[in-house]
Design a protein around this nucleic acid. Structure first.
Lengths: 149, 149
DNA sequence: TATTGTTATACTCTATAACTATA
DNA sequence: TATAGTTATAGAGTATAACAATA
């Protein structure tokens, strides 16, 4: 029996890459929590909501993005609104909808957070420039694949 | 002034790679939550704790790993112990310490979860085998860098 | 009738402070 | 005296169900 017929416990390079990917993310997680904590954005979904908003966004879309209940989004947006980071706007197309929009301050803070989170961790920064570029190009190709599931 | 002296808004390939990395992770997040939900491991830290345990592990080390308070780990381990997935053991070297160890059932469940989480998402699986291998090799090189911060 | 979002509510999760037991 | 972990507790976070407004 040759190696190529072994399928039961075969691990594809994709799965091996994915394991390393996740390990790297778990390495980074404390830093991400630290950055969120600097802005008192807690629990994580509050920070994720702020990070995700760009254009005015319906409450329901935020719920989908966070994978949480709509009533939880009401609570999250209440918190962000109390702090003046977002405001609820009417949607002229459908008066049931409430659009969540960044305030100027909210945009400033969100951009600050994004900038900090965008700094590659040591694990990536220490790679050769050749590796960095190859990694960037491969990941950009990957991200373009629709995540239908 | 030449381009190489421009430092203010320069984005390195490392940072660009890191942005794509994070986008891919956010794409995958719903699937991760779904897998955790299949096993009723909620909130996320409960699932992360179970996933992380291999050898019997002191409570305090789990708190460090999750970036949470020790009393929260007491609560998390209580939940896992109620379900028969872990058990507290004495540490013969230091009687203050409680080691959290997987039960047979806990190891079975943890392995099942790990196997599901190890399946590369479509974005990765759809890459050419050449890209998959390059990605794996680069990420493995990255992960070996100590995450001193 | 169905959908978007809010309110009221109960339950879950989390940290703080005080405590026990070891070191 | 310091450290590992637990307990008691208050407060934060989350979902469910019932509701109001609009489609």
């Amino acid at each position: 029996m040759t190696g190529t017929t072994e399928t039961v416990s075969y691990v594809s390079p994709a799965d091996e890459a994915w394991d390393a990917f996740q390990e790297l993310f778990m390495q980074y997680r404390p830093r991400m929590l630290e950055i969120h904590a600097e802005y008192e954005l807690k629990p994580p979904p509050v920070a994720l909501a702020l990070r995700a908003i760009d254009e005015p966004t319906p409450m329901g879309k935020i719920a989908d993005h966070l994978c949480c209940d709509g009533s939880t989004v009401t609570w999250i947006v209440d918190r962000l609104e109390e702090r003046g980071l977002v405001e609820r706007q009417a949607d002229p197309r459908d008066r049931r909808v409430r659009l969540v929009a960044l305030t100027d301050e909210g945009r400033r803070i969100r951009n600050e957070i994004r900038a900090k989170l965008s700094q590659a961790p040591p694990a990536i920064a220490a790679l050769s420039e050749e590796d960095q570029i190859a990694l960037r190009d491969i990941l950009r190709r990957a991200v373009r694949v629709p995540a239908d599931r």
